[in-house]
Design a protein around this nucleic acid. Sequence first.
DNA 1: TTGTACGCGTTATCAT
DNA 2: ATGATAACGCGTACAA
Lengths: 343, 343
Amino acid sequence: MPDTSPRRRKAATIHDVAQAASVSTATVSKFINGGQRFTREVEERVTQAIRDLGYRSNPLARGMITGRTGNVGLVILDILNPHFTSLVKGASRVAMRAGLNLLFADATEGQTPVLAMLQDLSRRVDGLIVSARLSEIATDWLQHSGVPTVYYGGQQSLAGGYGVGADSKTAALMLGRYLRDQGHRRVHYVGFSGARWSADRWQGLQQAFEGSEAALTLHDVAAPVAEEGERVASSLLLSAQPPDVVVAYNDLLALGLLGQAQALGLRVPEDVSIAGFDNILYGRYTSPALTTVDMASELTGEVAMQRLIERIQADPDTPLPTGHETLASRVIARGSTAARRMA
Amino acid sequence: MPDTSPRRRKAATIHDVAQAASVSTATVSKFINGGQRFTREVEERVTQAIRDLGYRSNPLARGMITGRTGNVGLVILDILNPHFTSLVKGASRVAMRAGLNLLFADATEGQTPVLAMLQDLSRRVDGLIVSARLSEIATDWLQHSGVPTVYYGGQQSLAGGYGVGADSKTAALMLGRYLRDQGHRRVHYVGFSGARWSADRWQGLQQAFEGSEAALTLHDVAAPVAEEGERVASSLLLSAQPPDVVVAYNDLLALGLLGQAQALGLRVPEDVSIAGFDNILYGRYTSPALTTVDMASELTGEVAMQRLIERIQADPDTPLPTGHETLASRVIARGSTAARRMA
DNA sequence: TTGTACGCGTTATCAT
DNA sequence: ATGATAACGCGTACAA
């Protein structure tokens, strides 16, 4: 079947419109950008010409002179993780409402060094939303470049930067208290040291059990994904001193742990309780459903984008706010955790 | 804490480089674009100047003259659906490898009419990957505009377009045969008429059960999401003639059905079998795990992006291939479906 | 091998 | 109220 589709037609330019309406390009430009009003006569002719020619201004040409691309960049660590997916959703919604396009980059593929990716991206966008988990050379360059940037995740504010996200230590503290009240005493935490705030969650847990007789044990995995949860499950669950609750760095790990625990013949939560962080949608559909902590994934994306837009539109002479905006998290208690007899 | 970060510095231009290296801008341009070779002397000076000034060419200015933006657009219906998330992952990987940036748009937010979104997007990209599920006015405009486009999903080739994806009817036929062999006789299909190929899946199911005594029933939901699965579960499962297997249009619906079935006190698969389409990751972590059909989500994204790149780079004088590229699907049999006694 | 000069489509400045 | 024209930063004929 031969191709009959038209080649990309060279779009009408502002010049074409001006000519068709018998006015100057300046007039058309001003009319479009809404600065001024004109004679009824002129307005009608221009409107007509624009409609006839299907004119839309060239974003590149416009960007060259205005210095605005109309794009914002969003760098995600792993789009397959529902936590980040939700973040994208929130950010996307706000961007769209503001008439901004979303330039999406998945940093999972270590192909390109992140720094090079950021440098490339930064020329194509008005601002950037990136993970607070980026390498220091990357964040340093971002600061130095002066590109409007908002960080999501980790709550320690980078010098001169602005961050948005739920607080990991608080979240872990709340989860820890809940588990402590349930009578858990042998607590294992499966951390992911690749994320700085895994340590915060570990601290929060420890703090929650302070003064109790609980024994806390720390593990570490290579990646915050379900497969890793499955991989470490047996060594963790079948040890001499098995945990009565396993807290995972995130829900994906918890999902893997839960599945493998059951595959190993353990009953959840009777034999072992399991909990995670992020409140991903799919934690509701396991049985038992997964206890987790909602980390405001989607809201993080929304707020980050709002703040970025504010920074982009900010008066160049007034200083930009610095620091971290902490969003509320909350424990979602479900069936994967249950009370223990007090020993 | 006051802001100490630098304002966005005006990046070095090719002019600055030329001046610093005591050559002309043309020399720098040719050097960068690799067309020619120069005197050792000149090459060194230029390289040095580029390094010193941290020069990177302005994509907008370059785009104006080359007609290439270096961006590709990807329009997704609902990024929260893991099927589409995987597609994005695949497309993103290929784009990144090709040095292209991904302009992502979530069409869920019906805020902007899709057509306007496409028109806007099309000026910012070299090509577009969109759902075959778009409205006709949208696809018509795309054809007419001549923007290189690849469709994902539905297998009916749009006139003059190019599509990529697994075949729904074949997939449903395979699943249907598997279920028929298991002895299922009261088959309910929970469709989503919003997607054209939901009908294909229904047809495939029907074909699989042709000549059997099975009774097939068709349902419809308003959206292909888990909540809808939960919503319709009771009326479907507690009817006078309850199904012995429920096939859902996709895994999200199946997940909702599965969860609600169990909440209603039904045992899966003993009382009712449940299956879906897409093979989303989280179907593995329910119990029982979800039977599904792998629809090559990630591969769809990869191939679609490859084909788009080919179309973008194609010689303007040779006709572009038209039609549909069908990817292999396969049944993933898991615990949510089990054999029935032959009646 | 290297440089000059024009044009890409737009907005902004300055006249009129 | 409207128009002429200079940027914006780059690639590329064409000239040298």
